[in-house]
């Protein structure tokens, strides 16, 4: 089967049936949970302090549930209404927004102590219309610029995604850098085709407590 982001835009791909299926699939749950824990670890937050975090592409709240358990306060955005509805049913603590991250955020400067995103960025690499403002570079630029501004200095954003080529990693990191971010890509299990995971670790300012 081809990758979901090639089949339809996320708000259409994740209709009611897909949203429930995705959320109930235990293998998805496990992978998502593992990646969320890893993303939180890479955020390098001060220990034992609740942080105010942004979950980008929060979906049905699989990561949000873990953020709740870890004692963090969060807001989540997603473009798929069906996923958000499942998140509502799951009775999580985070605030949920229906939002297209390619349109950019309206959060005031320095709002969040950090941001995570699990398996979302690859969707931004696919243009949805022929309109010039919808090209992937335009959408990525708006996303990274407004995300950079929404984060505190110093802080981090950790975004796990599934690139299909090194060119895609190049494109994404260069646009993130132009938006003001430092940092780069962390690859877990680089030699395993199945387990390989790419995390874009972006720094605002020094990038966190233990980083110079």
């Amino acid at each position: 089967m081809s990758r979901p982001e090639y089949q339809a835009p996320p708000e259409i791909y994740y209709g009611d049936a897909e949203a429930k299926k995705y959320t109930q699939n235990t293998r998805n749950q496990q992978i998502q949970a593992d990646m969320t824990y890893r993303a939180i670890e890479l955020l390098n937050l001060p220990p034992d302090e609740p942080a105010f975090l942004l979950d980008i592409g929060c979906g049905s709240g699989l990561s949000g549930e873990i953020l709740d358990e870890e004692g963090h306060i969060w807001a989540g955005v997603d473009i798929a209404p069906s996923m958000l509805e499942v998140a509502l049913e799951r009775d999580l603590d985070g605030d949920l927004f229906l939002q297209d991250i390619g349109q950019g955020f309206g959060f005031r400067p320095g709002s969040f102590d950090g941001a995570i995103s699990i398996s979302v960025l690859q969707w931004l690499l696919n243009a949805e219309t022929s309109h010039p403002t919808s090209s992937p570079p335009h959408r990525l630029t708006r996303f990274f610029t407004t995300l950079h501004s929404a984060l505190r200095n110093p802080s981090r954003a950790v975004l796990q995604f599934y690139p299909t080529s090194d060119d895609q990693i190049q494109l994404i990191t260069s646009i993130a850098q132009k938006a003001g971010f430092g940092g780069g890509v962390v690859v877990d299990y680089p030699n395993s085709k199945k387990a390989r995971k790419v995390f874009l670790c972006l720094f605002v300012g020094g990038g966190g407590t233990q980083q110079q």
Binding site: V77, L84, E85, L88, F97, L98, Q103, G104, T133
Partner: peptide, 15 residues
């Protein structure tokens, strides 16, 4: 609606 704010913009509103 149903607890979820709709932050989507129309094409001409996108920066």
């Amino acid at each position: 609606s149903n607890g979820i704010p709709n932050m989507l913009l129309a094409e001409h509103e996108i920066g």
